[in-house]
Amino acid sequence: MSTTKQTTDDLRTNVLEFALGENRYCVDIGYIAEIVDTADLTAVPNTADHVEGVMDLRGETTKIVNLRKIFGEDDGETLGSRIIVFKRKQDSKERIGWLADEVNQVREIQLQEVDTSVEGDGIAGVIRRDDDFVLWINPTDVRV
């Protein structure tokens, strides 16, 4: 009987890369239910500033969150054209979508590529891409 030892070098995952303004972000695709175009949003009074409103997504009310405001990148004018809708947590009835300017692609990454020394609310790490960086977001750590 042989045993295979799996090292960090072998661990891979798929992430969805997306843009908010000039910055690129990614999130593990295991959290994502679907990606939809931004439709008419209904504003909800007395909600947090980063909540842009709600929308009807196949008969379900979905709260739409502006990550630009959460991450302090809000230019006050632009709403993203795409919405990344997340799978519902087992203990939650709330369905959430994040506004994104652009959804780029799904990429496979090796976990050893992720620099976890960078700390920030919701930021799980940083991945170097050519001459740029992609910030890896852990959606369970983002306060929405």
Rank of each mutant, 00 (worst) to 15 (best):
T7A: 06
R58E: 07
N138C: 08
D75E: 03
V114H: 04
K5F: 14
V15A: 11
E94N: 15
L20Q: 09
Q105H: 07
L16G: 02
T42Y: 13
G76K: 00
E113V: 02
L16S: 03
F86D: 09
T4A: 09
I96N: 07
T42S: 13
G53A: 07
V134C: 11
V54N: 00
D91R: 10
L16M: 12
R82L: 00
A39L: 12
K63I: 09
E102H: 12
D28C: 01
V134M: 05
D101R: 03
I35S: 11
V51N: 02
R58N: 06
T4H: 05
E60M: 08
T61D: 00
E34D: 13
G125T: 12
E17P: 00
V36S: 13
V15P: 08
I127C: 01
E34N: 09
G120Q: 13
D130L: 10
R129H: 11
E77Q: 13
G21W: 00
T38H: 05
I29C: 05
R128A: 10
V44R: 02
S117N: 10
D131M: 07
A100M: 09
R143W: 06
V27N: 03
E22T: 09
F86H: 14
N23V: 09
N138T: 11
A48H: 12
T47C: 09
